[in-house]
């Protein structure tokens, strides 16, 4: 596992990054989506970004992916400045965004095909379809798949490029509770096997605690990192353990979602 981590995972350094959208607020006001964010993600770590909507977590993910550029500051992968999108950083959205005109096999093959190495990597594509448990559905079209299966296909499509970093933007947000837990296990298994650095955006506190090495709590206005909480629990984690609940309440407090109740002065 450790060897794999060194092989596949990459280190992400976010250094003083701000992202300002001009003219997008009310009355043409600029919107500050991120303000001077610093973050260091070690190779092979599982990081969750959590926070209310509008806190810039998706913006940060898009900047790391390279499909958007910071207004100031810089982001590096293994010391190299990120300027544009690259297959070394795979991206999975909440909407699987599979290409509807391609069947599952061709969707997964998009990466190798677009880089002109499809012939050499045909075996890889079968391998990754199997890794996410979609063998037998190679010829199906996206509209024939359930939400969970479509998201598995999207995972395989990103993984087939052997990314150093996998960026997941609420990938399980649209799924039902059972499919969700099922895919959480799958994601953990893939992470263990490949040692890819994972950056996982989520709304779900339980999900963040269950999956992550570290949970990054973000706040809107100013759109900054409020706190980084290290989750020091052994894996596989138990969702209803006391320690799990403690982390859960710490994050809730950090997000200021717990009303301050006066403690009763006596206990019966």
């Amino acid at each position: 596992m450790v060897a794999a981590a060194i092989k596949e995972g990459g280190r992400i350094t976010v250094d003083g990054v701000s992202r300002v959208f001009e003219d997008q607020g009310k009355g043409g006001q600029p919107v500050v989506a991120l303000s001077k964010v610093d973050l260091d993600i070690e190779p092979g770590q599982f990081i969750s970004l959590i926070g209310p909507s509008g806190c810039g977590k998706s913006t940060l993910l898009r900047l790391i992916a390279g499909i958007d550029n910071p207004t100031s500051g810089e982001i590096k992968l293994d010391g190299e400045l990120i300027k544009d999108a690259h297959p070394s950083r795979g991206l999975v959205f909440q909407d699987p965004t599979l290409f509807p005109w391609k069947n599952i096999w061709s969707n997964v093959a998009t990466g190798p095909e677009s880089r002109g190495v499809l012939k050499e990597q045909k075996g890889e594509i079968d391998k990754f379809i199997e890794l996410v448990g979609l063998q037998g559905f190679e010829k199906a079209y996206p509209h024939q798949l359930s939400g969970g299966m479509a998201q598995r296909a999207a995972l395989a499509r990103a993984l087939v490029n052997h990314p150093k970093v996998l960026l997941l933007d609420e990938p399980l947000g649209a799924l039902d509770a059972f499919t969700r837990m099922n895919l959480q296990e799958e994601i953990l298994r893939i992470w263990r096997e490949r040692g890819t650095t994972m950056v996982f955006v989520t709304h779900d506190i339980d999900e963040a605690v269950y999956l992550s090495d570290r949970v990054v709590v973000m706040t809107p206005r100013p759109a900054q990192i409020k706190e980084v909480i290290k989750i020091d629990l052994p894996r596989p984690r138990v969702r209803n353990s006391t320690a799990f609940f403690e982390y859960r309440s710490r994050i809730l407090e950090s997000l200021q979602l717990v009303p301050e109740i006066e403690q009763p002065e006596y206990i019966v």
């Binding site: 499909i67 544009d84 999108a85 690259h86 297959p87 795979g90 965004t97 677009s114």
Partner: peptide
């Protein structure tokens, strides 16, 4: 859908 282009770009297109 702009997401198609974004995903394709991260795949190396």
């Amino acid at each position: 859908n702009k997401s198609f282009f974004e995903v394709a770009r991260t795949l190396g297109a």
